[in-house]
Nucleic acid binder design. Structure first.
Length: 332
RNA sequence: GGCCUGGUAGCCAAGUGGUAAGGCAGAGAUCUGCAAAAUCUCUAUACAGCGGUUCAAUUCCGCUCCAGGCCU
């Protein structure tokens, strides 16, 4: 069975660096699992690794999409599977590195997503409705899905309706453990083929106070380096304010700031900017907490403190052990 | 110096003669193609201070302090 390494962790913990370090040692290539770094022109705000920082290690799934278009897990999953295959065929080790837990799990668990593309028209129509109205619609379409859906969450309700409208019912979620090999329906077949990896997850973690400090420092550095300009450029190149808002964090709050200062006396500029940075700082912190909540769910993650070299060494040792075990198995 | 307005939890903010909404922040969580999104749960011995009126004051009265505004 093919083996992959995953490097995950909250924002600002130093994943990219560690991934490169690991790749150097084990002849690996890196696949980014980051829902925002796929977009071109979104660099500072996403903390995208620079060419120089890559130190010659190939990186995949960066800068592959236009920020005006919506990239989704499903596309990510397909692309990532393909990249993994290619890397392995080159005799190298795939290293998944990123902070988007949903994306990572799509690879690791081989989550099966219903094959229903977003329906723009339907979404637009439904987006005007309240959660209660959406729920009523979904009940009519698919009672089963209603049982365990978050009935207050319009985004989920809309997607469920979208699926049910397209294929009648929302198929049960494909999930790793309990599906036996006897299931022969197509969703299952896809699932089996996708769940073909053995995974070693390395998680980077820092004490909350330290992480907060790092987030703040990094945010201020980004601002200095031209974060606002980056968002301005995106907007000039045709990315709507609405779209920037949906992209979140830096893109959302800097975009709001840019719109706000258009008709603001220059006296208040500095204040508006400070307020924006403050708000952004707490939002990034919230994001980091959500990441932690997600990552915590997998008990098989090897957590290390990136400040401690002994722990990094330990991680490398574990990785080598993991990869060697593979060879032994294959030889038998 | 005089007049006015205000002082409610870390911040913002409602309100009442019978011990006080909400929001933010804080903590935890959910997650079936937007996941940096969306959603949920939990959380505070807070009414500037001192007197007075009253069965009862955060709410009424007086004084003091503090903040902001106006006037001379």
């Amino acid at each position: 069975m093919d083996k992959i390494i995953v490097v995950l962790g909250q924002t600002s913990t130093g994943k990219s660096d560690l991934a490169v370090e690991i790749a150097k040692k084990i002849n690996g290539e890196i696949i980014s699992a980051d829902s925002r770094q796929v977009y071109k022109g979104m660099n500072l705000g996403t903390g995208k690794i620079t060419k120089k920082e890559m130190r010659g290690i190939p990186h995949h799934l960066l800068d592959i999409y236009s920020p005006s278009k919506v990239f989704t897990v499903n596309e990510f999953q397909k692309m990532a599977f393909k990249k993994i295959e290619e890397i392995i065929s080159r005799g190298k080790v795939p290293i998944i590195c990123g902070g988007t837990g949903f994306y990572i799990d799509a690879i690791v668990n081989g989550t099966v997503f219903p094959n229903v593309p977003p329906n723009k028209k339907l979404r637009e129509e439904l987006s005007k409705k309240s959660a209660g109205e959406l729920l009523k619609i979904l009940i009519k379409l698919d009672k089963n899905r209603v049982k365990n859906i978050d009935t207050n969450n319009p985004v989920r309700l809309i997607r469920a309706i979208e699926i049910a409208t397209a294929i009648g019912k929302v198929p049960p979620l494909g999930h790793k453990p309990r599906l036996g090999p006897k299931d022969t329906n197509s969703a299952m077949a896809e699932f089996v083929s996708s769940n073909k990896f053995e995974v070693l997850k390395i998680g980077l973690t820092l004490p909350p106070e330290i992480l907060k400090e790092r987030i703040k420092t990094r945010l201020l550095a980004r601002m200095k380096k031209g974060m606002i300009k980056e968002v301005e450029n995106l907007h000039k190149s045709g990315v709507s304010w609405k779209r920037l808002n949906a992209l979140g964090l830096e893109y959302r709050y800097v975009a709001l700031y840019l719109q706000k200062i258009k008709n603001l006396p220059s006296l208040r500029l500095r204040q508006a900017k400070n307020e924006m940075i403050e708000k952004l700082y707490t939002e990034i912190w919230h994001f980091a907490k959500r990441q932690k909540t997600w990552f915590k769910r997998d008990p098989n993650t090897l957590w290390i403190d990136p400040r401690k070299n002994t722990e990094k060494t330990k991680a490398l040792r574990e990785i080598k052990k993991f990869l060697n075990a593979k060879k032994r198995l294959e030889n038998k």
